[in-house]
Computed example of a mutant assay.
Amino acid sequence: MSVVALVPAAGRGVRLGAGMPKALVPVAGESLLSRAVRGLHDSGRVRHVVVAAPADEVPAVEAEFASLRSFVHVVPGGAERTDSVRLALAEAERAVPDARVVLVHDAARAFTPPSVVRDVVRAVEEGAPAVVPVLPVADTIKQVDEAGDVETTVDRSRLRTVQTPQGFAIDVLRQAYAAAGDIATDDAGLVERIGGKVSTVPGHPHALKITTAFDLAIAEAVLA
C-alpha cells in the first residue's frame, strides 16, 4: 500500500520572529523542514513527499532537497494552510496515483521520531480511516467564563494533545477537504466534521511543535 506525505510549509512563522519562513529556520545547521522530511524518509514507510513551500522560496527548497529529488517534490503553497494541503494533495495524487495512505506532517514538528511515522501508517493500513499521534495532557485544565473566572476544573484523564504526522486513507482526506471551508488548522478535525472516526496512537515528547523563539532554544539545547 503506497504512502505519500504532505508537508505544508508555506507559513511565515511570525510568532517565531526569525525573519524567514519558519520551516526554513536552521537548527544546528539543518532547517526544520529538512529534519521533518528526513524523519519521514527514515521511517522507511513513505514513498513520496510533497512539500508546499512559500512561492518565492520554491527554488531554494528544491535545492535543499537536490539529493532526494526522486523522493521529494516541491510545489508553491497557498495563502492558508488549507490551500497548501489541497495543492500538495493534488500533486501527490498525480505523482503516486496508486497511493492509498496519506500523511500530513508539520515541518514545525521536525523532531518526530520515525517510529511514530511507522505507527501512524500501520494503523491506517490496518483499517483506521484517520489516525493521530497523541500524548496525555500533563497540566491541570481550568474552564473559565468570559470574565476569566474559573467555572470548573476539567477532568484531564480523557484529554490528549495531538501531534503529527496525522494519517488518513487518501479518499477520506479527499472527502474531508472537499467539504471543508477556507481555513482549517487540524486535518483530523475536518474528518470529524464529516462524521469520520479518528483513532489514536502514542505520540512522543520529541515531537514538540516549534512555534516560539523559546521552543527553538529548547530544540537547540537538546541537540547540543
Score class of each variant (00 low, 15 high):
residue 195 G to P: 04
residue 191 V to G: 10
residue 192 E to G: 02
residue 185 T to W: 13
residue 174 R to W: 09
residue 181 G to I: 08
residue 212 T to M: 07
residue 200 T to I: 10
residue 189 G to T: 03
residue 182 D to E: 14
residue 172 V to H: 11
residue 179 A to F: 01
residue 212 T to K: 03
residue 198 V to M: 11
residue 182 D to G: 03
residue 192 E to L: 11
residue 206 H to R: 10
residue 176 A to K: 02
residue 169 A to S: 06
residue 203 G to C: 06
residue 182 D to K: 12
residue 191 V to C: 12
residue 197 K to T: 15
residue 204 H to V: 01
residue 194 I to Y: 00
residue 187 D to H: 14
residue 207 A to S: 15
residue 174 R to I: 04
residue 170 I to N: 10
residue 187 D to K: 00
residue 205 P to A: 11
residue 201 V to L: 01
residue 188 A to P: 05
residue 206 H to I: 00
residue 181 G to C: 07
residue 168 F to K: 08
residue 201 V to K: 04
residue 193 R to M: 13
residue 206 H to G: 01
residue 173 L to E: 06
residue 211 T to P: 00
residue 212 T to F: 05
residue 173 L to W: 08
residue 191 V to L: 11
residue 208 L to S: 13
residue 201 V to W: 05
residue 208 L to A: 14
residue 203 G to E: 04
residue 197 K to L: 12
residue 196 G to S: 11
residue 169 A to Y: 02
residue 194 I to R: 04
residue 205 P to L: 09
residue 191 V to H: 05
residue 176 A to L: 05
residue 170 I to A: 07
residue 188 A to V: 02
residue 182 D to F: 01
residue 204 H to E: 05
residue 204 H to G: 04
residue 173 L to C: 09
residue 210 I to K: 10
residue 208 L to V: 13
residue 195 G to K: 04
residue 176 A to G: 08
residue 201 V to N: 02
residue 183 I to V: 12
residue 173 L to M: 09
residue 190 L to P: 00
residue 203 G to T: 09
residue 183 I to W: 00
residue 195 G to H: 03
residue 184 A to T: 07
residue 198 V to T: 13
residue 176 A to S: 14
residue 187 D to L: 06
residue 211 T to F: 05
residue 212 T to A: 08
residue 170 I to Q: 13
residue 195 G to C: 04
residue 169 A to M: 05
residue 182 D to P: 01
residue 171 D to W: 13
residue 200 T to D: 08
residue 196 G to I: 09
residue 202 P to A: 06
residue 202 P to W: 02
residue 203 G to L: 04
residue 174 R to Q: 14
residue 174 R to V: 09
residue 172 V to M: 11
residue 172 V to I: 14
residue 198 V to F: 14
residue 202 P to R: 03
residue 194 I to H: 02
residue 202 P to Q: 05
residue 175 Q to G: 12
residue 204 H to T: 01
residue 169 A to Q: 13
residue 212 T to G: 06
residue 181 G to P: 09
residue 186 D to N: 11
residue 196 G to Y: 05
residue 190 L to M: 14
residue 188 A to G: 02
residue 200 T to V: 13
residue 196 G to P: 11
residue 192 E to P: 00
residue 172 V to P: 10
residue 171 D to T: 15
residue 185 T to N: 10
residue 187 D to V: 01
residue 172 V to C: 08
residue 169 A to T: 06
residue 170 I to T: 14
residue 207 A to Q: 12
residue 209 K to I: 07
residue 174 R to F: 04
residue 211 T to D: 11
residue 192 E to V: 02
residue 181 G to E: 06
residue 169 A to H: 09
residue 185 T to M: 12
residue 192 E to R: 12
residue 185 T to H: 15
residue 202 P to V: 01
residue 200 T to R: 10
residue 205 P to D: 10
residue 188 A to R: 00
residue 194 I to M: 12
residue 209 K to M: 07
residue 179 A to H: 13
residue 185 T to R: 10
residue 171 D to P: 08
residue 183 I to A: 06
residue 200 T to K: 09
residue 208 L to D: 12
residue 191 V to E: 11
residue 205 P to N: 14
residue 206 H to N: 05
residue 210 I to D: 07
residue 171 D to Q: 15
residue 197 K to P: 00
residue 180 A to C: 11
residue 184 A to L: 09
residue 209 K to V: 06
residue 199 S to H: 15
residue 206 H to S: 08
residue 197 K to R: 15
residue 188 A to L: 04
residue 202 P to Y: 03
residue 205 P to Q: 11
residue 183 I to Q: 02
residue 186 D to Q: 04
residue 210 I to W: 04
residue 182 D to Q: 08
